[in-house]
């Protein structure tokens, strides 16, 4: 076990981890942050997406010990001050159904928007192409992202 410290949603956290512990399991089962989900455990589905140092990554493919000294944002961190415009647009459009892919999808789109405030439809699709959704057919999610990024 090694004590690691990292910033999680703006708060400095410390936790003891073994080298074989995966970031997703540490976030969910040791720290209790539950918005990152497990949907494949192989990096294919994107449900476990978190933002690491500003980039969307797969927390199922990262060893928890690697994030010592790094900065992580999960959906819980995004919603601290109420809904973001993207979350509001998704809500208004009934964009999600079962909602299981939503945390990962929203974080991927948020990352896209932070580096590219007015993405094309292709860029929007590309940014969430690693987040599998079985319910929605994606179009309502794409429409919500388009709506928010066309404004302003």
């Amino acid at each position: 076990m090694k004590k690691i410290s990292f910033t999680l949603n703006g708060e400095l956290r410390q936790v003891d981890v073994a080298p074989n512990e995966i970031l997703l399991e540490v976030l969910r089962y040791k720290i209790g942050v539950k918005s990152p989900k497990c949907g494949c455990d192989t990096g294919d589905c994107g449900a476990c997406t978190v933002i690491l140092n500003g980039k969307a990554v797969r927390s199922c493919l990262i060893f928890a010990i690697e994030i010592n000294g790094q900065e992580i944002v999960t959906l819980e961190g995004l919603s601290k001050d109420g809904l973001t415009p993207l979350q509001k647009a998704l809500l208004d459009r009934n964009a999600f159904q079962c909602g299981y892919c939503a945390p990962g999808m929203i974080l991927s789109a948020t990352c896209l928007m932070s580096g590219n405030p007015h993405p094309s439809e292709e860029e929007i699709k590309e940014s969430i192409a690693g987040n599998l959704c079985r319910c929605t057919g994606y179009q309502p999610v794409i429409d919500a992202i388009s709506e928010v990024t066309k404004k302003h």
């Binding site: 989900k37 497990c38 809500l91 009934n94 939503a102």
Partner: peptide, 19 residues
Amino acid sequence: AVRIDGKEKVTGAAVYTDD
């Protein structure tokens, strides 16, 4: 109507069994 579980789902508050 906006779905009544919508806010839970866009904020990550929705609780699934393994949560």
